[in-house]
C-alpha cells in the first residue's frame, strides 16, 4: 500500500481562524435553528434512516455544493490526496466504522462536544487525536516516502 508522501504546508493562522469561526457559526445555526448537532458522521450515517432524512440530506447537499461552487469559481484549495486505491478504501472504512461506533468525529465530538464540555467527547477527541498523530509518526518514519 503506497503511503501519501508528505507535502509541506504553510502555517495559516488567519485563514484557519476565519474558517473555524464559520464552522462554529454553522454548528451554532444548526443547534439554535433546528436543535440538531452538526456532526458530519452522524448526519451522513443517519441518511439510511427515513426519519430525519430531509434535513440531513439538505446539510450534506450544502457541504457538497460548497466544494462544487469553490471549484466552479476557481478558488478551491488543492486537495493533496495521495495513496493507493486500497489504502483510500481501507482508511475510509476505518473512518466510517470508527465514527459510527464512537458516536462522532472531528465535528460532532471535536467541535460540538468540546463546546458543551461533554466528558465523553473530550475523551473521544483526545483518543482520536493521539492515535492519528501516532499513526502519522509511524507512517512518516517507516513509510519509506
Amino acid at each position: 500500500m503506497l503511503l501519501p508522501p508528505p507535502v509541506p504546508t504553510p502555517f495559516t493562522p488567519v485563514l484557519a481562524l476565519a474558517g473555524g469561526l464559520m464552522i462554529g457559526a454553522s454548528a451554532g445555526l444548526l443547534w439554535i435553528g433546528i436543535g440538531r448537532i452538526a456532526g458530519i458522521s452522524g448526519i451522513a450515517g443517519g441518511l439510511i434512516e427515513r426519519a430525519e432524512r430531509d434535513w440531513r440530506l439538505a446539510f450534506v447537499f450544502g457541504l457538497l455544493l460548497a466544494g462544487l461552487f469553490a471549484r466552479m469559481l476557481g478558488i478551491a484549495p488543492t486537495i493533496h490526496l495521495s495513496g493507493s486505491v486500497p489504502l483510500l478504501a481501507f482508511a475510509g472504512l476505518l473512518v466510517g466504522c470508527g465514527t459510527a461506533l464512537g458516536g462522532g468525529c472531528t465535528s460532532g465530538h471535536g467541535i460540538c462536544g468540546l463546546s458543551r464540555a461533554a466528558p465523553r467527547s473530550i475523551v473521544a477527541t483526545l483518543v482520536f487525536m493521539v492515535v492519528a498523530a501516532t499513526v502519522v509518526f509511524f507512517t512518516r518514519t517507516f513509510g519509506g516516502s
Binding site: 470508527g98 492515535v131 501516532t134
Partner: peptide, 25 residues
C-alpha cells in the same frame, strides 16, 4: 465502544488525512 471507535477513526484519519466533513467537501 467510544474509545475503540475513536481509536479506529484515529487510524483511518492518520493514514489519509480525511475525516467525514472534509471528505464530503
Amino acid at each position: 465502544r467510544l474509545t475503540a471507535g475513536a481509536s479506529l477513526f484515529g487510524v483511518g484519519w492518520g493514514l489519509i488525512g480525511l475525516c467525514p466533513g472534509p471528505a464530503l467537501v
